[in-house]
Amino acid sequence: MTVSAAAAPSGLQIHPMDQFKISPLFGNGDVTWWTPTNATLWMVLAVVCVVVMMVMGTSRRAIVPNRSQSIAEMAYGFVYKMVEDVAGKDAVGFFPYIMTLFMFIVFSNFLGLIPMSFTTTSHIAVTAVLAMLVFLTVTIVGFVKNGTAFLGLFWVSSAPLALRPVLALIEVISYFVRPLSHSIRLAGNVMAGHAVIKVFAGFAGVMGIGAILPISAIVAVYALEVLVAFIQAYVFTILTCVYLKDALHPSH
């Protein structure tokens, strides 16, 4: 690959996007579809974290849980309640699927906050796959469960008849924009925060004693990013539940 440093002549050199580069873990070859890359490493680490938290943490199966089991149970209860409350009681069959999405996103986001790490959810390829999975699931489940009645989702029967075709057009567009907004919201939020931190870090490198300003800014942005890491995972999951509710109960 021709990843030249593109050496600027002098002074301020900030490459906020370098942290998102995908490169092979071993050697400098091409990135083929199976090459283990830094993205692979951090995805595997996310899987390992999920296993540690959800399987090893609960291995005691205690009636009175210890700390790690409490955390696993809290995560379980958090997502289960979300599915039940937002998508409805008949959606609990999708709970393992939604839990998978939530756990992957939340661990990817938090692992990405470790300095020098790689954030898999900052890549549109990853979030687009996640969003397309949700979109396809919702669409297929909607048609399988409701047949053509699922199309009633686009036909707002509570609106005046004259307005309905216009609303139907808007509804159809918004339906197909869902996977786009769903994926870009997550990747965009994560990427922006990381890039901003990198930019401030670049300033800090050349400001000498004045670096205290960008460093305090980094602290503030980092705190915000911790919040964003969880909130974006939560938003992605709850939107999945909302879309699933549309598929199961398409009437407005």
Binding site: I22, V31, T32, W33, W34, T35, P36, T37, A39, T40, M43, V44, A46, V47, V50, V51, M54, V55, T58, A72, P96, Y97, M99, T100, L101, M103, F104, T120, H123, A125, V126, V129, L130, L133
Partner: peptide, 24 residues
């Protein structure tokens, strides 16, 4: 890099899904 990411992501998701739905 999309093919690579999608491939590994699919593996990761399948792994998490099976660990969660079969064990955890």
């Amino acid at each position: 890099t999309f093919g690579n990411q999608i491939f590994w992501l699919a593996l990761a998701l399948i792994a998490i899904f099976f660990v969660l739905s079969k064990v955890a």
